[in-house]
Write a protein that binds this DNA or RNA. Structure first.
Lengths: 112, 112
DNA sequence: CCACATACTATGTGATACACAGTATAGAGA
DNA sequence: TCTCTATACTGTGTATCACATAGTATGTGG
């Protein structure tokens, strides 16, 4: 395994944990899977379909999201938005994110 | 599963990806496992022994760290420090960390 | 009419943090 | 001396989850 591959793998791990946070935060506005993916992509968070859809189902199963099949134009889409529980969880997660950031900053500050 | 448990699980996932980054960054100074753990704990990054030691071995196996058994005082300890490859990887990871931060900030900024 | 974007589903795999348990030494206080 | 705690590391099993890959199906522009 070369250095490039190692970095790539660590990069994936790094993003992995941040995905639920990003998804929850983004779903303060209603989105369907595809538009959510586009939105996150634009903000620099590439997320595979095979990652996003199961994640959405998982978060819904946990009661953090609600969803609804609708056909606004012609196609049927599953629209997701943050549930009340999701809002609470999101707020806690944001706090955790800040804490984590401070910790990492503390480690990086020393020598960098 | 209640809201508390969900948050806790997501929190773990969040930190998970950041651990290699923190470990690599901290090992710009030499440390043995125990002192490394103490150091990270102080900075707010609690890391289990069962997580840290395997992680160290993995990073060494990938050539990012070098280690050496030594008995400075009485006890024998395995001292770790960043290898040259580790330095490169660390620098890339820091860049990725900043990118991720910007992305998350972009998502959070909208409504929070 | 056909290539492409859209929109979602399904399955298998590999990586890995953590739980839990175990081994062993050193130092301090009773 | 005995025991307790901190130190220091190893080993095994499990659950979770992102990703790879493939498949289904519909709308749209040329």
């Amino acid at each position: 395994m070369n250095s490039q591959e190692i970095v790539e793998k660590l990069r994936l791990e790094l993003r992995r944990g941040a995905l639920p946070l990003a998804v929850l935060a983004q779903l303060q506005e209603e989105h369907y899977g595809y538009s959510l993916r586009r939105e996150l992509n634009q903000k620099g968070l590439e997320i595979d379909e095979g990652t996003l859809y199961p994640l959405l189902r998982r978060l819904e199963k946990q009661g953090l999201l609600t969803s609804e099949w609708r056909s606004d134009d012609k196609r049927k889409k599953r629209y997701y938005r943050l549930a009340e529980l999701g809002q609470e969880v999101l707020e806690s997660l944001i706090v955790e994110w800040r804490v984590l950031n401070d910790s990492i900053d503390a480690v990086l500050k020393e020598k960098k």
